[in-house]
Simulated scan of single mutants.
Amino acid sequence: MKTLGPIELALRLLRRELTVSLRRRTELANPLFFFLIVCTLFPLGLGPSPQILAELAPGILWIVALLSVLMASDALFKGDFDDGTLEQILLSPVPLYTTVLMKTLAHWLLTGVPLTLLSPLLALMLQMPSEGLGALLLSLGCGSLMLSFIAAIGAALTVGLKRGGVLLSLLVLPLFVPVLIFGSAAVQRAVAGMDASSPLALLAALALFFLALAPFAIGGALRVSLDQ
């Protein structure tokens, strides 16, 4: 029997997670509809003034994207826990680090990436100047990756609880705040014609940090949750 290399194994795990997740299309569509609907409601609540909308657009987009990622995170490990797959994952010879890394990346690819690609359309609807679109895409791309890993840690800690959604929000929302601050600051600086490279570089560095180390925390949280 052929032994798979680490890269081939990781790609197969990622493909499996994407295939399984795509079968639950309703769960995948909910965050996107939430993102679209809430951003659409802001012009109705704030009024049609282009200046007010343009000024608030970076913060609005980032806050709603943050909540959309959080909304999709509660079920990240829930299905595997309910059907007993999670216990098999922990007993499997496949490194837990690789498994949770691919599960979280699949979550980001199906949640964070679509939100990022949809954001320029909503930004134009909110009258945000086109100068900030590039920074918006880059900041949301890196930021949503971090949000997915942070949310995955919280989801792993609360996976065994019957009503873990509220506790998940309380655990991860404080950790979302730095990402929100730097992400919206990058877009605001770009809209104002200033150099946005510093907050974008910091977001990229933090994204790589979480990509490398967060799977250890997620795996540890899963072990703790199943040992209870």
Rank of each mutant, 00 (worst) to 15 (best):
K2H: 09
G5E: 10
G5F: 01
I7P: 00
I7D: 07
L9Y: 03
A10M: 10
L11R: 04
R12N: 04
L13R: 00
L13I: 14
R16E: 13
L18S: 08
V20L: 15
V20M: 09
S21G: 10
R23K: 13
T26S: 13
T26G: 12
T26M: 11
L28W: 08
A29R: 11
P31Y: 15
L36M: 08
C39G: 03
C39H: 12
P43Q: 03
P43C: 06
L44Q: 14
L46R: 05
L46S: 11
S49M: 11
S49R: 11
Q51L: 11
Q51P: 10
I52S: 13
I52Y: 11
L53M: 07
E55I: 02
L56M: 15
G59Y: 15
L61F: 13
W62G: 02
A65I: 06
A65P: 02
L66K: 01
L66Q: 01
L70P: 02
F77D: 03
F77A: 06
D80C: 07
F81W: 06
F81P: 00
F81I: 01
T85G: 14
E87G: 10
I89V: 12
L90M: 06
L90C: 02
S92M: 04
P93E: 11
P93R: 06
T98C: 02
V100I: 09
A106D: 05
W108S: 07
L109V: 14
L109Q: 10
T111D: 02
G112E: 13
V113N: 00
P114H: 11
L117G: 03
S119A: 15
L122K: 10
L124I: 14
L126W: 07
M128Q: 14
M128K: 07
M128L: 15
P129L: 05
S130F: 13
L136T: 09
L137I: 15
L138G: 01
L138T: 05
G141Q: 08
G143M: 09
S144F: 15
L145W: 08
L147E: 05
S148L: 06
I150Y: 08
I150L: 14
L157S: 06
L157M: 06
G160K: 00
G160R: 00
K162V: 12
R163M: 13
V166E: 12
S169L: 13
L171C: 08
L173V: 05
L173A: 10
P174G: 15
P174D: 01
F176S: 02
F176G: 03
V177R: 02
P178Y: 09
V179I: 12
L180W: 03
I181L: 14
I181K: 13
S184M: 01
V187N: 03
Q188C: 08
R189L: 12
A190W: 05
A190C: 12
V191C: 13
G193H: 11
S197L: 02
S197C: 01
S198C: 14
S198R: 12
S198W: 12
P199Q: 04
L202Q: 14
L202V: 06
A204S: 04
L206D: 02
F210S: 00
L211M: 14
A214M: 14
A214C: 01
A214D: 00
P215I: 03
P215T: 06
F216C: 02
F216R: 10
I218M: 05
G219W: 01
G219M: 04
G219A: 09
A221C: 05
A221N: 02
A221S: 07
L222N: 00
V224C: 09
S225Q: 03
S225M: 05
Q228D: 12
Q228E: 13
